[in-house]
Each structure stands twice: as C-alpha cells, then as structure tokens.
Amino acid sequence: MKNFDIYWATFKASLQAKLEYKLDFALGLLTSSMLQLAALGFLWVIFHQTSNLQGWTQAEVIFLFGLTAMSLGASELFFNHIWMVPYYIVMGDLDRLLVYPVRSLPFLLISRPELHSFGNLLTGLALTAGSLWTLHMPWQDWVLVPVWVLCGSVIYTSALVVFCSFSFKFVGPYGYTLMIPHTLLQASRYPLSIYPAWVHYGLLFLVPYGVFNYLPGNWVFGKMLFSAGAFLTPLVAVVCAAVAERVWNWGLKHYQSTGS
C-alpha cells in the first residue's frame, strides 16, 4: 500500500509538471486526435469502395478503432516512460532509477505521462460510443468497454516492454525497436479475419492485441468466432504483464552503466 502511494504521488507530480506546458497540452490533444482521424480517413476511403470487410460494417470497424485508440491513450497516460529506455541505456541514465527502493518497471512506467494521451483517449471514446450508439448495443457492452481498454493498455505496454528489454542486450541507437509493437497495434484496428492466417493468429496468440479489440468486437456484434475469448482479456493481460516483467528483469541483468 505504501508503495502504491509512492507510485501515485510520482504519477501525479509528473502529470502536474507536464500540464504546466499548456500549449503543448492543447497541441498534443489536437494532434493525437488528428492522427486517429487520419487513420479513419483511410477507413473512409476503403468503405467508399466496399460495404464491409469480411462481414464487418463501417460502424463495427470503428468500434475496433475506438478500443485501440483508447488502449493506446491509456498506455501513453499511465505507462509511457518505456519509450525513453533505449535512450537511457545508451546514456547510462538508468542508474538513478535502479537505486530507488521500488520495483523498477512499474515505477519507470508511471513516471512520465504523455499529454497527447488525452487526445487518443477522447477520440477513442467518441469512436467507441458513436459505434455502440449507432448500432443500439445493450448496456452490458458499454460497461465492459473500460475493462477491455485497461487490459488493452496493459497488453500493449507489455509488448513494448518485451521489445524494449532487448535494448539492454543489444546496446545502440535502437529506439526504433519499439515502433514494431506500435505498428502492429495499428494492424489490430481492422478485423483480424481480413489478414492472412499467420498475421491473424500472430495477433491473437503471439502479440495478442486481438484479445482486447477483435475478440470483444466478435462478442459485442454476435459474430460467434471465438467470441467467448472476450472474457479472457483480463487473464491475458495479467499473463502478458508477468511475462513483460520477467523479460525486463532478464534485460536489467545485462545493463551496464556508462560509468560517468
């Protein structure tokens, strides 16, 4: 409990510091929404040519877009600091973190919230709510959305942590490695059934992004395919978080300070 207080105080202090930059906050809000709308622009082009994607209508795909955007936003708000680790390893700046009397991974993750996360959260919320409202979905679906978003942010962050941990072993300007799980997240905005089997199952079992948007989508819209899997999302999130922390600890064993 005492540890939780430390994490919460750190998160609050970091967020307050970031909120001091009001222009950055406004721009971050605007631009992250623009990035989501840009992706939506492509979806609009696609649905200008076809009425559905493997049986998924535009409103249903927008639900997937919304869940993905909110999961991304939640990760950027609560666990964003992971993006700086490859840089810290090169500069030897991780020493400070390692002498704190806390668990290094959770403390690192929460200590640098990103302001543009609010743009992704709000845009995602608008898309998800718009989709559920348009399709007249029952209240149970609305209630489960926060659970899927929270689990989604944990699963996505876990993938980032796993990819990032390789930076301990292979030191260098490899910040791009984090772009791989980030790019795969973009793929999960579409129904996985439109992809070839290796991508489809890769995004369900290997990097399980489909568990927090595609499976819930199947359940919400009654598509039957693995729909019961929507209730496995919390379990998958816990497993992913455990794997991520193990890989992180393995990586830390290879960390060498710069000595300066």
């Binding site: 930059y21 222009l23 950055d24 721009l27 971050g28 605007l30 631009t31 992250s32 623009m34 990035l35 709308l37 840009a38 992706a39 622009g41 492509f42 543009h116």
Partner: peptide, 17 residues
C-alpha cells in the same frame, strides 16, 4: 513548444491522409 511531438505528428497525419 516544449515538445515538438504535436507539431510533427500533425504534419504526418495530414500527409498520410
């Protein structure tokens, strides 16, 4: 601005679309 992210991301968003 303190961070250029917003500025750069907005250009990329419009460019992609």
């Amino acid at each position: 601005t303190y961070s250029g992210y917003g500025i750069f991301a907005s250009r990329i968003a419009v460019h992609h679309t």
